[in-house]
């Protein structure tokens, strides 16, 4: 868990963006401080749209936000926000013939580091930071998926940005790579504001001092991971067979069932986890919207029984 500062560095109010009839962002307001904030939500929740708006890639139809005191409503303010920004998009693209050094150097030039010697120093620093110093001269197309993701993180970190936006950086990584990447994100969160979009509740549990849950373009929860888990207090129980009264239930490794919802009288209650709180938060949203979306990381094994 990273060091947390109470000072607000990123502030947004009333962000709204429609794509046709779909509200990708619906009156989103938030205030972020230093440290890593997790952004959880199913596909189509509006996470990536929110990150793109905060990264100044697409403008919101209404609402406003500031990053480190800069308002991107004006061209000058937008440029200042971009100077303070490190962005790792959901599917970072690379010029495959570039080496990690050349690619990060290219991004450093886009970040206005034109002095060759100073830029090369900075590129070496970030490549060292993400552990790619040894392969800096190898073609990116010959690197593993985990290494490519670290190249993208190095590109986001170049220029020492104050606001880091990471869109599902751990997707597609094996467990070992994921752990290595979490270490890097935790390190990057020291002294910076990091907004981390993820499907992995484990990412949030291990890295974040705060978590936002989005669904249907709105922020459904804003608090600490412990508070999100506490939402499920007294609402998680064990049974030998699937409980038809549960909102969600799944068979565990020990053969019993773990149920989330409103427990029957005398149920064998379990300690709630972050994931339980997340599922219940989403379930409330599905109840509001009347549809059934993806269940995030555990969509493959959770069974809706309500």
């Amino acid at each position: 868990m990273t060091t947390v500062s109470a000072a607000v560095t990123v502030s947004a109010s009333g962000l709204t963006l429609r794509y046709g009839a779909t509200r990708a962002l619906d009156d989103v307001s938030l205030r972020l401080g230093r440290g890593v904030t997790g952004l959880l939500g199913p596909n189509g929740a509006g996470k990536t749209t929110l990150l793109r708006v905060l990264a100044t890639s697409v403008p919101a139809a209404s609402g406003a936000f500031t990053v480190l005191g800069h308002d991107p409503a004006s061209a000058h303010g937008r440029q200042e926000v971009r100077r303070a920004l490190g962005y790792l998009p959901q599917t970072p693209g690379f010029h495959p013939d570039f080496t990690p050094f050349e690619f990060v150097d290219y991004v450093a030039i886009l970040k206005e580091l034109t002095d060759r010697a100073a830029r090369h120093r900075e590129v070496r620093r970030v490549l060292d930071e993400v552990g790619l110093a040894e392969v800096r001269g190898k073609r990116i197309k010959k690197l593993s998926g985990g290494m490519r993701q670290r190249v993208a993180l190095a590109a986001a970190l170049v220029g020492d940005p104050g606001f880091l936006v990471l869109d599902e950086p751990t997707v597609g990584l094996d467990p070992e790579q994921r752990m290595r990447f979490r270490e890097l994100i935790a390190q990057a969160g020291e002294g910076r504001t990091v907004l981390l979009s993820t499907h992995q509740t484990e990412d949030v549990a291990m890295l974040c001092h705060r978590v936002l849950v989005m669904a249907g373009g709105r922020v459904r929860f804003d608090g600490t991971p412990a508070e999100l888990a506490a939402r499920a207090a007294g609402r998680v129980w064990r049974s030998t067979a699937r409980d038809p009264g549960a909102k969600a239930g799944w068979r565990t490794g020990t053969g019993g069932y773990r149920n989330v919802g409103d427990p029957p009288e005398g149920a064998d209650l379990l300690e709630p986890t972050l994931e339980d709180g997340y599922l219940l938060t989403l379930d409330g949203d599905r109840g509001d919207r009347g549809d059934r979306g993806d269940r995030g990381d555990h969509g493959d094994r959770a069974e809706a029984t309500a």
């Binding site: 990264a55 100044t56 890639s57 440029q79 971009r82 100077r83 920004l85 962005y87 998009p89 970072p92 693209g93 690379f94 010029h95 495959p96 290219y106 991004v107 030039i109 886009l110 970040k111 206005e112 590109a155």
Partner: peptide
């Protein structure tokens, strides 16, 4: 065609200049 388009568009270098 530009694989780095999304990173490029949020860079401080003005898009028109690039």
């Amino acid at each position: 065609l530009d694989p780095t388009y999304e990173m490029t568009v949020v860079a401080p270098v003005h898009g028109f200049r690039l």
